[in-house]
Amino acid sequence: MNVFFKTINKISDLGAILSAVVFALMTILLLSEVVLRTFFGSSTEVSGEYSGYALAALIYLGLGFSFREGAHIRITFLRERLGRTGYFILELLCTAFAMVLSGLSCIFIWEMVLTSKARNLVAYTPAETPLYIPQALILVGMIILTLQIIAQLTALIARGPQAVEIADSGAED
């Protein structure tokens, strides 16, 4: 069981590291555009387009990590008014629901990537980037998020209602 959690944590961390790398690359790309245009009268030609891909990639790749860290917010009004068992059941339902949604999103994005590849969809930009490539990155991010939610759900079931901490909110630093 421990190996299971450790592996998933590692994967989420890896996602976060990739996300940070993409963030750095995006910043460097935009700075290069500024430098090229200002000093060399030239252009990367892709800064607008690729900063869009970079944003999508860095957000999705960071989802698993940020979910584990409790960065994603929710409304706690009802939960706090329930007892320990009620809280546990509701938490279980919420997490399971999130898992289903996240899993469905993976399937849908997977289909989108396949269609984009099969149809040779390209961006309407000078680079004519095949869209399945950046789309595959967001698929990876969603898969990591789904794994992380599965881990959370497993942990919740394993610990049971007795161990549930009634947290004030999910967003502690």
């Binding site: 030239s42 892709v46 387009e49 000078p126």
Partner: peptide, 17 residues
């Protein structure tokens, strides 16, 4: 678009998208 950039660059302009 790609065509505009390519053609105007060839003509010596600093074409940016």
């Amino acid at each position: 678009d790609k065509n505009g950039t390519a053609v105007l660059k060839k003509a010596g302009a600093n074409a940016v998208v």
